[in-house]
Amino acid sequence: MNTYVCRFCRQPSDPSQPTCPLCGAPVDIRDSVSESGWIEQPPIKDMARIQFGQSHCQIAGTTVPVAEFNLAQQEMVYFSHHVLLWADPATRMQNMSLRGGWKRMMAGMPLIMMEAHGPGHIALSDNHAGEVIALPLQHGQSMWVKEHRFLTATGNIRYDWNSNDVWFVTGDDNEQETHYPMGQFGDIFTATDRPGLLLLHAPGNVFIRDLKQGESLLIQPTSLVYRDTSVRVHLHLEYPRNMGFPFWHSRLDYRNILVRLVGPGRVAVNSVFERPEGMEPIRNHSYATRHRW
């Protein structure tokens, strides 16, 4: 009986291969774990193969990796249309129907999702230096993914999206602006009738951590790549102690906007994140913990 479980995709795997056949992670390397417990996601080795169903995916390149699919008859992947790098003419492509087009457009989420049906070859890549992350999902397993990190998924993975419920409002009585530091919506992927493969792309390096029950951590909102749906997330406002800093504008507010993750579950962050938005005072916000130093 095979008892080897891949350290990165957490699925029973084959240790006799140079890379995990389910997620492409190298088998023959030691864990890179920081003192605080972050495990560095090892880059998928150049030309590593990942098997799913009767099809397979090969990862080419290491700086901006390309995911190249050899799709078998009756098998399908879907992806946002802007990540398509090339395709065989034989590969049948069509758009996928999505609910909530207006909401998605207002939230800046991709509006067009494409399906590619085998047999045929197709290759996908994002346009940032970073890593491709392969997440094999077991039947019934769900994963939350930050918007714009999704690269592709196999046809049996259900795609849904819901509100992140992490927001704050700035402005005055005349003009108010609602900010969504993690994006307004998050993607939820669930393997429905059988195991499936989810591929993400994250700029920079990726680090994983397993939070114990009740364990918490503060992170930059835009650095979160994915999390188990068991991990709770809410806004955290931290006000550093002002050591006499002269605010020349009374309408500026000195604070750090973070999100607080509470275990149990796995979380992944990437080392590239967007700069936090402005410094206007916050008038209203979603549920948040606060700390004034």
Binding site: S216, L217, L218, I219, Q220, S223, E238, P240, R241, N242, M243, G244, F245, Y254, N256, L258, R260, V269, S271, F273, H291, W293
Partner: peptide, 14 residues
């Protein structure tokens, strides 16, 4: 700032 322990105090530099 990418992440921090909750217990690490923050203040401003003059």
């Amino acid at each position: 700032l990418l992440w921090k322990d909750e217990s690490v105090p923050l203040s401003s530099l003059k």
